[in-house]
Amino acid sequence: MKRFYEKHLVPYLLILPAMTLVVVFGLIPVVQNVEISLHKWNFVTQKTYVAFKNYKDLFTSYSLFPKVIKNTFFYALLKIPPTIILSLSLALLLTKGVFGQNVFRGLFFVPWIVPTVNIAFLWMYILEPEYGLVNFLLGKLGILGPGWFYSVNWALPALGLISIWKGIGYFSVLYIGGLQNIPQEMYEVAEIDGAGPLKKLVYITLPLLSSTTLFVLVILVIETITEFDLPAVLTDGGPANSTNLLVYYIYQRAFNAFQGGSAAAISTVTLVMLLIFTISQFRLSTKWVHYEI
């Protein structure tokens, strides 16, 4: 009897507090969200059941949804590879024993701890087409700077630029941690075998950093798909919906158009997308991530 109690009851009692939080703030809202997505609802009047109409509407030509998905993928492409490459490069530089290394590590980390809204306002001035610093410097080089947030083509890259700048410091700290875990002997052995700097990077550093890269990648993808603050503060999703990203669009459907059902449907689709990505990422990662040294 005592064994039964210890084996089947105690563990559940122990996870109960954590599970309560997950269920109340995680699972129940998800289920509710699915339920709302099957209705037409403006938050105030009675819900009317419309089955899968909200989902079907997303994929008609009458919906911005395809464009928003395209924007979000383009944004991910603009942001994720440069962030990974730049933060890794920075980490490599900052583990070489450069003068004032620790000061630089601290400095590069600063943008990460500043709230995004403040950063957005800062860059609003830096990227101002007429009086901003960037276009001023471009002008000195004889280049006519683009309109940035005023331009349909440049607004999204501008958001990407800000986001990359903000993230590099943080992700390079993760990479520095990863680099410090690589045993020095491996490099010494490689040197004895005659490996140059490039070979050491490709055959030792990158493979042994792969678990860090996986973590960085997952965080970056989630961050990109759930990006909200930058478009909300800087562009309102404009001009002409060129910076309308997934989560901002959910917000617009819910609180500009008061289409609760439609917003819930997009949320569900987003959830499914993130699930597919995360599961497939962990499956695929067994092929390229090396946890053991």
């Binding site: 331009s151 349909v152 404009g238 002409a240 617009q252 500009n256 158009a257 008061f258």
Partner: peptide
């Protein structure tokens, strides 16, 4: 009307597209 906020939101986006692009 009930949908007016949605109408002006969509309309203003279209206007930006017309004038800027």
């Amino acid at each position: 009307s009930e949908v007016f906020l949605d109408i002006i939101n969509v309309f203003e986006s279209a206007v930006q597209e017309i004038v800027i692009s």
